[in-house]
Design a protein around this nucleic acid. Structure first.
Lengths: 204, 204
DNA sequence: AATCATATCAAACAAGTGTTTGAAAATCAA
DNA sequence: TTGATTTTCAAACACTTGTTTGATATGATT
């Protein structure tokens, strides 16, 4: 299960702990403890704590499952593409079968960027952003101004990310029981319908 | 401008620095330096760093301007109330005339809650949540299930909070120039129209 | 003026931090 | 095997952290 390679063991452990406690809150001793390696390995495989953090973020982003919808079949209705995008985003945040710290680490970097952010945006955010904007161009009337496209995209992504970034508050507000009943599929359907109606696109 | 009271000076300085760097990232020496007080004042007026943090968060929440729409005139159309709520939320996050660290500190507490969170939810979030849910009850058909009300509220608040929590990413994505042109009024109008159409409420 | 509680201060403390060291062990190539 | 290179390790280092101390100043009360 856990990799033998001490470098990768460090990346995994660092990802978990950085996600949980942030850069300052995490200590290298706790990380090397979980990874089961000597403390000097941090400076051997990475230069210092900061480099370890950056590499851990990139490792987490790479470890993300590939989008299954970078290429839809020709003729796929754009509303269906939008549904796929929304569903996939929510799955990343809420799928209980995948480690929660992956999404958490990336979300942390999005809300309080460090030096790792520039790379993350270029390699991770930009491409996904382009896909969404392309679908919106199909859904909205031609010649829709660039600004309008972005505002719409933010409305969609804002709805999705809310369930990750504000997870603890949601728990407190609706109660633990109700929270457990929030499955990704239901949420995706709600957000999709909400958005399609907002865009004036009839159900498909 | 700045209060004479060392206790309040500490609260202000702590709020700014905690908002910027988080609990672990902020050091008491930097805080007392900005406040211009002796380091022992932290333990004199508050017990320790953690208490200072909690009090700073509460102080920031109290310093928030009172909602001007806790009571609308009788007969106000619910769509107008919704517009007021959305506009006010965005103003809190984006109004350049008010210190940015207030919203930032609260947002930080919402996305990575500490011990200060429970109180914040009770005194700050819950009441505003109830107002929004009440308006949604007016807008949506009677007997709309509780869960549907919450999901709708999350869709609205998610859109608004996105501009605060993901501010740095938005800057990177659309460019600094375009970001400067995102004024709160325009955003509020976009989100309001988006939401009203999603709810199937005709313009008013 | 004398007394007392309150407030401020510089200095030090103990614990924890990231980082480095230099030697030992393991691995590989000749 | 021999020698060279890579990897691992315990120990220590230099520094920052939050916190406490004990003395001094301030201000009100008797």
């Amino acid at each position: 299960m856990t990799p033998e390679n001490p470098r990768e063991r460090l990346l995994e452990a660092a990802g978990e702990i950085f996600a949980e406690k942030g850069f300052k809150g995490a200590t290298v001793r706790e990380i090397i403890d979980r990874a089961g390696v000597n403390i000097a390995a941090v400076n051997y495989y990475f230069r210092d704590k900061e480099r370890l953090y950056i590499e851990a973020v990139k490792h987490a982003a790479c470890g993300e499952p590939e989008e299954p919808h970078l290429s839809w079949p020709e003729g796929t209705p754009p509303a269906g593409k939008l549904r796929d995008i929304i569903r996939f985003q929510l799955l990343k945040f809420l799928d209980p079968s995948r480690p929660a710290w992956l999404a958490r680490l990336i979300m942390r970097e999005l809300t309080q960027p460090s030096d790792a952010c520039a790379e993350l945006v270029r390699e991770y955010i930009e491409p996904r952003s382009k896909v969404l904007l392309g679908v919106l161009r199909e859904l909205l009337p031609p010649n829709t101004p660039r600004r309008k496209l972005f505002l719409t995209a933010f409305s969609i992504v804002g709805q999705c990310h809310f369930y990750c970034s504000h997870k603890p508050i949601i728990r407190l507000l609706i109660g633990e029981d109700e929270y457990q009943r929030l499955d990704p599929a239901t949420l995706a359907e709600h957000i999709t319908q909400f958005t399609l109606r907002a865009l004036g696109v009839e159900k498909n």
